[in-house]
């Protein structure tokens, strides 16, 4: 899977699920936590979505904000994880 594809899926999910608007422009580098787009409840939703979509499980030490704080951070982290699984 290409990284761009992951970025698009993550970005669409975040727009629809947290901003209720698929057409909204969201900067791929914006901090999702500091901007309040994702809160503690949202974290759970996001992680469940990624685990279900990509049929993967995150270990505890992967659940740090650095890996999830922006759309780019998420897709980078996810891309690398999926590469390693292969």
């Amino acid at each position: 899977m290409h990284k761009e594809e992951i970025t698009l899926i993550v970005s669409n999910y975040i727009k629809k699920n947290f901003l209720f608007d698929e057409k909204k422009e969201v900067d791929n580098d914006i901090s999702l936590y500091q901007s309040g787009i994702i809160d503690s409840m949202g974290t759970i939703e996001l992680i469940s979505f990624l685990e279900n979509t990509y049929k993967i499980r995150f270990d505890d030490d992967e659940l740090i904000a650095e890996n999830f704080d922006s759309i780019n951070a998420i897709s980078n982290f996810l891309y690398n994880k999926l590469q390693n699984i292969k």
């Binding site: 901090s31 936590y33 901007s35 809160d39 503690s40 659940l63 740090i64 904000a65 999830f68 704080d69």
Partner: peptide
């Protein structure tokens, strides 16, 4: 207190929101 059982307690990184 929910911050202590947050998935993000590691490295104190869950506090980004309050740093705005």
């Amino acid at each position: 207190p929910y911050l202590t059982d947050s998935l993000f307690k590691a490295k104190g990184a869950s506090f980004e929101f309050w740093k705005k």
